[in-house]
Write a protein that binds this DNA or RNA. Structure first.
Length: 882
RNA sequence: GGUCGCAUAGCUCAGUUGGCUAGAGCGCCUGCCUCACAUGCAGGAGGUCGCUGGUUCGAGUCCAGCUGCGACCACCA
């Protein structure tokens, strides 16, 4: 066995991910039958590079997937990437810029070809990084949101929604990014609190009898004002409603209208109305039939409607207007004001509300079903509280603007007749207008990236065809995702899945936290606090990294990635590695069948460790069922390190020198092999590597990744053995404690004398004297009965058991006395507490009987222990000749 | 403005239906190169579970309020 002293993940990881893939271990077969477990990956952007969010998301998915696959489920995990409209177009445009070109010079067709080329070359990076993370996806089913099949699904959905009137085209106020030069949906606008100003402007009445003061954060929009609104019941203005004002700078006459949207308390109680550049004002404009004027072009440069300000940018215009207004007295005052500025989620440019003709999805009818599906529990959020967020959004959902003025994406399947103006929406490209036979021009726009993402759970399985994959794997079992895309993605998949499949897209939505840095800050390039998962994997190994992520993934809490925790789990991998080294050393050259024969006679530690494995197995399975990843990790960590390594491995060294070494070896092999299977979903590489050199139970597959996930073994459960072993360990720990506190050198052996009324305990200690002697470095183990007194010894007070360690000639008694006094104080304090409780009539009458009797038993034990400590002190005093 | 989440050892975090003498890792202290592992072994110190009330025989755990932090949503010019 050429295993090195420290585990070196390099080589091991790439070896196994290549072999797994080459041998097609993770390719699903719908014909396999049986219980199904299926997932679709949240497709990362093709432009992306693996970040902590991906690492966490995919580690958790992979753990689930491997668990269910091992557990015998017909398992499918569909991988893929998203074409990421704006993001990808931006990346390629930047490339062009470096070459001194731009997309307009290139032309649409060649530009799109260029993006495809980029995708072929650079788009696979994230996929390789996922492979490195160890994901067990079915790569034969890898999809891309722009590939042929998915494009067909997108087109089918678009046409059907259009035919049902759920997609429409209209002129409406939308969010516009002047840099990307495209419309955005509400979700793609990020609101950022910013320090700005509130500008108070004076609009003169047309009859020159006075002025009305209005306030705005964006003075340049006043060029598009078509009214001033006041509250209908505001007496200050009632007489003025219906009159006209003269718009400064342009001299346009605008009416004073009444609308109860206006807050009388704010500012002067009069609001300038700009339907062409403000969402509220747009609504008011609709209500009152106001003119809607755009004063900017697509690049947010002031247009001809801006009169003297035409040609300036929004920012320049604002500056100039403020100067001008200051001069001519229109500006009453400026005050600081905090406001939420909407920015483009891709490029951070300030978004401009603009009037334009766009395509929309009428989402309300779809949302109703999606709400109902979660209400009724057909889809379940874990943790459950996320459903509130989901409901809140769904209930207030607004129509979804789906057209984007980009070149990269699914082109909208709509054509307009150059003759009669007819709109044709079609599954296949039409040649001419079906009405008048005139030529058609195709809508230049593409769809929001999230439109195709919304179809992902069924489009990846072959829809609109009725495929075996679709039959078998839809609805998927669980969607694992971060909460940041519940609206963008989860909600829309729900709507589309219900609409087109008639069934929810996933049974569970497991929502995990965000990964932050150690200080709790969101990781971002601009903050410079990004920890690169690839660097972490290089440094500590992928398994250590995965284990860390799982251990941190407690529900409902953000993850602060602490580097020393990763190091700690790296050490854990090393521990496992060395445990395996030890076991393999013991097995070398021997035949081990890795099974415990029925009726095999086992030692107490053997029965104990098998019972513990069985309990562990049950607990881990339960934790998997509840998506409690941190619990899975800590259960396995605790058992591996502390029960298996610290105790059983040490004990096995004795057993192998004992009368039945083969049984001891068998138990070692059995426990380690099971442990590897239990650990594999979290740490696939190291476990596969070790497993391959270990004997396996008969009928095992060739890879651990396909080996059955262990079940608890009822026949291994042995409460009696667990209790007995716990007793023995308690004695050993006690002795070690005394030794350490007394500073007894390791080589120095102490004798152990015990006294107990329990024959069972006595038998236990005498039978396992060898164990105690070896692990606690004890000389003789002897029982005393009757009145024999052990003078000058250290005393251990255990329940129903007194242990004396004669110290003559070894240590100062004063130290031991000190130790006993501390012990006594502790026992007395606790006894007080228990006594008080048991003296409480309410407690006795109202607490359940078992709780009361537990306290009573505790009292007995404390009393008895205290007596032992007191006696120990007396004996010490005697020995000291006091 | 609305909604949600979080506050537990020096640090990073567990703590599922209330029964805890509150746990882990790292760090710290003591002693060990014990033949799997010094990325280790054995032992130890360290917490009025943010604050104030309430419910209960009993609250880190449930309820209310407060304080602080964070997130999301929102049309207050």
């Amino acid at each position: 066995m050429p295993l090195g002293k420290t585990y070196d993940p390099r080589g091991v990881e790439s070896k196994w991910s290549e072999r797994w893939r080459r041998e097609r271990l993770f390719e699903a077969d719908p014909a396999k039958g049986g219980r199904v477990f299926s997932m679709v990956i949240p497709p990362p952007n093709v432009t992306g590079s693996l970040h902590m969010g991906h690492a966490l998301n995919n580690t958790l998915q992979d753990a689930l997937c491997r668990f269910h696959r091992m557990d015998g489920a017909n398992t499918l995990w569909v991988p893929g990437t998203d074409h990421a409209g704006i993001a990808t177009q931006n990346v390629v445009e930047r490339c062009l810029l470096e070459e001194g070109k731009d997309r307009h010079a290139l032309g649409r067709e060649r530009f799109v070809e260029r993006v495809w080329e980029w995708k072929r070359q650079a788009g696979g990076a994230i996929v390789n990084q996922l492979v490195r993370l160890g994901v067990s996806c079915d790569w034969s089913r890898e999809r891309f949101t722009m590939d042929e099949g998915l494009s067909r699904a997108v087109r089918e959905v678009f046409v059907r929604l259009y035919e049902e009137g759920l997609i429409y085209r209209d002129r409406y106020l939308i969010n516009w990014c002047p840099r990307c030069r495209t419309a955005l949906s509400d979700l793609e606008v990020e609101h950022e609190e910013t320090d700005g100003f509130l500008y108070h402007l004076r609009y003169p009445l047309a009859d020159s009898t006075g002025v009305i003061e209005v306030a705005t954060t964006r003075p340049e929009t006043m060029l598009g004002d078509t009214a001033v609104a006041v509250h209908p019941e505001d007496e200050r203005y009632t007489s003025l409603v219906g009159q006209a004002l003269v718009l400064p700078a342009l001299g346009r006459r605008i009416p004073i209208i009444a609308d109860d949207y206006v807050d009388r308390e704010f500012g002067s109680g009069a609001v300038k109305i700009t339907p062409g550049h403000d969402f509220n004002d747009f609504e008011i404009g609709l209500r009152h039939g106001l003119d809607m004027i755009s004063v900017m072009d697509e690049g947010a440069v002031m247009n001809d409607n801006a009169g003297p300000y035409a040609g300036l940018t929004r920012e320049q215009c604002r500056e100039r207007m403020v100067e001008d207004f200051e001069e001519d007295g229109v500006l009453a005052r400026i005050e600081p004001h905090r406001l939420a500025v909407g920015k483009c989620y891709r490029c951070r440019t300030v978004v401009e509300p603009m009037l334009s003709v766009q395509w929309f999805v009428r989402v309300r009818p779809l949302a109703e079903q999606a709400i109902e599906a979660v209400r009724s529990g057909r889809t379940r959020f874990v943790p459950q509280h996320w459903e509130k967020t989901y409901f809140a959004w769904m209930e207030n959902i607004r129509d979804w603007c789906i057209s984007r003025q980009l070149w990269w994406g699914h082109r909208i399947p709509a054509w307009y007749c150059t003759g009669c103006g007819e709109t044709v929406v079609s599954r296949t490209d039409p040649a001419a207008c079906p009405k008048c036979q005139a030529a058609l021009t195709r809508d230049p726009d593409v769809l929001d990236t999230w439109f195709s993402s919304a179809l992902w759970p069924f489009s990846t399985l072959g829809w609109p065809d009725r495929t075996a994959d679709l039959e078998t794997y839809y609805p998927t079992s669980v969607l694992v995702t971060g909460f940041d895309i519940i609206f963008f993605w989860v909600a829309r998949m729900m709507m589309m899945g219900l609409k087109f499949m008639g069934e929810v897209p996933f049974r569970d939505v497991y929502v995990h936290a965000l990964v932050r840095d150690e200080a709790g800050q969101k990781m971002s390039k601009s903050r410079g606090n990004v920890i690169d998962p690839l660097a972490v994997m290089d440094r500590y190994g992928t398994d250590a990294f995965r284990f860390t992520l799982a251990a941190f993934a407690a529900m409902g809490r953000d993850i602060r990635l602490a580097e020393d925790r990763i190091e700690g789990y790296r050490n854990f991998m090393n521990k496992l590695w060395n445990a395996a080294r030890y076991v393999l050393l013991q097995l070398e050259g021997r035949k081990v069948d890795c099974e415990i024969a029925e009726g095999e006679e086992l030692t107490l530690p053997q029965r104990w460790i098998l019972s513990r494995v069985s309990a562990l197995t049950a607990a881990v399975r339960e934790a998997f069922a509840g998506y409690r990843f941190n619990e899975i990790a800590s259960l396995l960590y605790e058992f591996t390190w502390h029960e298996f390594c610290d105790w059983y491995l040490e004990i096995s060294k004795l057993e192998i020198c004992g009368p039945r070494p083969d049984v001891a070896r068998e138990v070692l092999a059995v426990v380690l092999e099971r442990l590897l299977r239990l650990l594999h979903p979290l740490i696939p590489f190291i476990t596969e590597e070790i497993w391959q050199s270990l004997p396996h139970p008969g009928g095992s597959p060739r890879y651990l990744a396909l080996a059955p996930y262990p079940h608890p073994e009822p026949s291994w459960r042995d409460d009696q053995a667990e209790r007995a072993m716990e007793r023995v360990m308690e004695v050993i720990r006690g002795v070690r404690n005394v030794r350490a506190e007394m500073n007894i050198p390791p080589a120095q052996r102490l004798d152990l004398v015990f006294r107990t009324d329990s024959e069972e305990t006595a038998r236990l200690l005498l039978e396992h004297a060898e164990l105690v002697r070896a692990l606690a470095r004890v000389g003789q183990v002897r029982r005393v009965q009757g009145s024999e007194r052990i003078a000058g010894s250290a005393t251990l007070a255990l329940s129903g058991l007194e242990i004396n360690l004669p110290l003559a000639g070894v240590v100062d008694f004063a130290g031991e006395r000190e130790r006993l006094r501390r012990e006594l104080a502790k026992l007395s304090a606790e006894l007080d507490r228990v006594d008080r409780k048991l003296a409480d009539r309410h407690f006795l009458t109202r607490a359940p009987e078992e709780v009361v009797s537990k306290e009573e038993a505790k009292r007995e034990e404390l009393l008895q222990k205290r007596a032992l400590v007191v006696r120990g002190l007396e004996l010490l005093a005697e020995a000291a000749g006091e």
